[in-house]
Amino acid sequence: MSAIIAIKALSKTYASGHPALKQVDLEIQPGEIFALLGPNGAGKTTLISIVCGIVNPGGGQVLVAGHDIVRDYRASRGQIGLVPQELVNDVFETVWATVKFSRGLFGKAPNAAYLEQLLKELSLWDKRDAKIIELSGGMKRRVMIAKALAHEPNILFLDEPTAGVDVELRRDMWAMVRRLRERGVTIILTTHYIEEAEEMADRIGVIRKGELILVEDKDVLMRRLGRKELILHLKEPLTSLPASLADFKLELIESGHGLRYGFDSQHDDTGIPRLLAAISAAGLELRDLKSKESSLEEIFVNLLKEGV
């Protein structure tokens, strides 16, 4: 399948001299949900802004549905809807007027029925005649999504879509993203909530200091870089590890009341039966044991700390 977005050697250095992107290569497949993760200032918003036409690229090439974003900007931009990070709206306009404006801006003929359906889907229909300034923060965020979807785009960029929204709205938005994906819309989101990426994304990209350091299928990433741990709680605390357990690379935790054992769950030999036998042979008694899998957040933090 050919990529719906193909980014080749994209770079951008701002007038201040700050290199925001360095030779980024990335392909987004049609219909996928792609999460772009990275700390503040990593280049996520710059990357999105270039693809959407808000920032001029420094070097490289971006194709959207096969159309070059510079030479064939009409065709490429028409495919894209963008929900930016900041809550920016024409606050003195009504919800209906601003959504209608967005549709026209993208060259689409008026379609009141579609806009009505869109506003209903986002629970905004009752507020259609309200001025945006009168709406709550969550409602304003919904208006921005409605604006981005007003021209029926095939690709939706969500830049920190749930920053500062309550749990209920966040869940609503996740459900909406899934519905859009079912309709074939490709979704690229940046987020600080790793839980969000873990919940929704098919693939994950990690960007750090303008470099895309990793792009991976989410499940593969969690299997590959994720670590499983076995936590063993002891009846009696230890001051040091017995010499017979030295080969297992155990970590003494909880003031000697626990042992942490890391293992590869994909490997046939996890070493757990031998470990349990060795613990028993050493005369240690167990009170409890549990296993724990690394979250995407832990993987992400490690990636940023260590690089790839």
Binding site: G53, I54, R74, R77, V88, D90, V91, S102, G107
Partner: peptide
Amino acid sequence: MPRYAGTIYEVLSAPIS
């Protein structure tokens, strides 16, 4: 005004010359 309010993003990202 749209530059100040930030809503200019929409005009710049639209398929308009």
